[in-house]
Each structure stands twice: as C-alpha cells, then as structure tokens.
C-alpha cells in the first residue's frame, strides 16, 4: 500500500517536473501561431494555425541574415577552439612540468571570468584590429568563453587514455602532431564532439559581446536580434514576432540536444571535474 503510494508520488513528481520544464516553451510555440487579437487570449490549445508571424520575421526583418551570422560565428569559434584546445590539452595532460596544476587552475579560472571585466579592453582590441561590427570580432571575443572550457574537458578525457599506444608510437619515431592526429584523435572523437556541441551552444547563445561589438542589423546575431525586436511604436511590443523568432532559433538547438543527450551529459560532467 505505502509502496504503491510512493510510486504514485514519484510519477506525480516526474509529471510536474516535465510539465514545468516544457510548458513555457510550449506556450511560446502556441503564441507564435496566433495572430491579431487572438494573441491576447490565453488559449492553451492552438485554435488556428497562423504562420503570419514566421513570415513577418523573415520578410520584414533581416532575420535570415542574423541566423547565418550566428551560424558562422558559432562554427568558426568551435573549429578554432577545438584545434587550439586539442593541442593544448595534449601538452597539459602528457607533459609533467612545474606549475602545470597552477596553469590548469588558471584556465579554469578564466572560464569563470565575468565577461564585463574584459569588455572595455576587448572593445579596444577589436577596434584596433578593425573588427568592430564584424562577425570576426565576435569570433575572437568568444574564444575567451569557449577555449578554457574546451581545453579543460579535452584534457580530462585525454588523461583517461592509455599511455602504452602513445609510447609505442614515440618509439617508432612519431612526432607530436602525428601522435595527436593518429593516436589521440580517433578515441577522442566522442569527446571532441560533445565539447564542440557545448561550445557551439555557448557561442550561439552569447549576448553581452554580441550586443556591444555589433552596431547594424546586418551584423547582429540571433540573441541580440530577438532582444531588440521592436514594434511599430515604442509602446507596442510584437510578442507574436518575438515568440516566432524564439521558436525558430530554439528548435535546431533542441533537436541537437535531444539527439545527443548522452554526450552532452558526459561533456558537462567532465567540464566540472565531477
């Protein structure tokens, strides 16, 4: 009896958690399909399917350009971080040198940097490089977010790999690059993949740098575009458009996350050393 009761309680709890997690997004999706006055009625089921809001964000705003920008920035940041991260992780996990622990801790510390602390310095650097209001500037500044984390996770994974194969390769006269490329990369692919995915999501979602280092619509990334979507007048916020844009950019991320659930979980766990 009490067993059955606690089972029921568990299911109820699971139901509440699922509802609480998924409902706001569901409601946003419903809102995005409403048009006109229907927007202000609080139906929980879509009564009609209007795609007007979706059409509007692509026709009236340069939203497609925005998505392309975000995509290029995130892809660029991920490739650079993975390449630099892999070689750095190799050096950190295989060479024992003085201050290695300190260096690892510094890298972890950098990932906890408040972005605003480097804002003015970064602004100057980006302007000096002529990258202000260019997506290249964003790629550069995002490295501060993705690089430490990539190095940390890859080093954690690399330390778990057996040394014997690597030692055999050294005996056969393989150089560091060959070792990284031929010995480490194949077993590290899953780790590379989950780190890359996490870095991609981090870059895709970043807001502060994107807001500060871009000026024009054509250079903006998705979060900034959504935050700055405005209506016809100052007092009218186009909630339908905002929700449509939100759903549009969230769906790809959600699909990725759902497909690669397990990898994300293991990547996150490695990232904090737990």
């Amino acid at each position: 009896m009490s067993r059955g009761l606690s089972r029921a309680g568990l299911y109820l709890l699971a139901g509440i958690i699922a509802l609480a997690a998924a409902f706001p997004f569901y409601y946003a999706a419903i809102t995005s399909l409403k048009s006109g006055d229907a927007l202000f009625s609080m139906d929980l089921l879509p009564r009609q399917w209007h795609w007007d809001n979706y059409v509007a964000i692509f026709a009236q705003q340069p939203f497609a350009t925005t998505i392309v920008n975000s995509f290029w920035v995130a892809t660029g940041v991920v490739s650079v971080s993975l390449m630099l991260g892999l070689s750095a992780a190799y050096a950190l996990s295989r060479n024992r040198f003085r201050g290695r622990r300190l260096l690892m801790m510094t890298i972890l510390g950098v990932s906890m940097f408040p972005q605003v602390a480097v804002l003015s310095g970064m602004f100057e650097l980006i302007r000096w490089l002529g990258l202000y209001n260019r997506i290249g500037g964003l790629m550069l500044s995002y490295l501060i977010i993705t690089l430490p984390f990539t190095v940390w996770v890859l080093a954690t994974f690399m330390r778990r790999l057996p040394r014997e194969v690597e030692e055999a390769a050294i005996m056969d006269g393989a150089g560091p690059l060959t070792i990284i490329w031929r010995i480490f990369l194949p077993p590290l692919m899953p780790a590379m993949f989950s780190t890359g995915l996490l870095a991609f999501i981090a870059a895709w979602n970043e807001f502060l740098f994107a807001l500060t280092f871009t000026l024009t619509h054509e250079q903006r990334t998705v979060p900034v575009a959504i935050a700055l979507l405005s209506g016809a007048s100052e007092y009218e916020l186009p909630w339908g458009h905002i929700m449509a844009a939100s759903v549009t950019v969230t769906v790809p991320a959600v699909v990725l996350v759902l497909i690669f659930q397990r990898r994300i979980v293991s990547g996150l766990a490695a990232g904090t050393g737990t």
Binding site: F207, P223, S246, T250, L258
Partner: peptide, 14 residues
C-alpha cells in the same frame, strides 16, 4: 534538458 538548451535571451522573452 529543454530549458538548458534554450538561449537565455529567448527564455527571458518567454
């Protein structure tokens, strides 16, 4: 996992 995957800006707007 859903809330985690949603961009912060989007969740703020939602």
């Amino acid at each position: 996992l859903l809330p985690w995957a949603i961009p912060t800006i989007v969740s703020a707007k939602m």
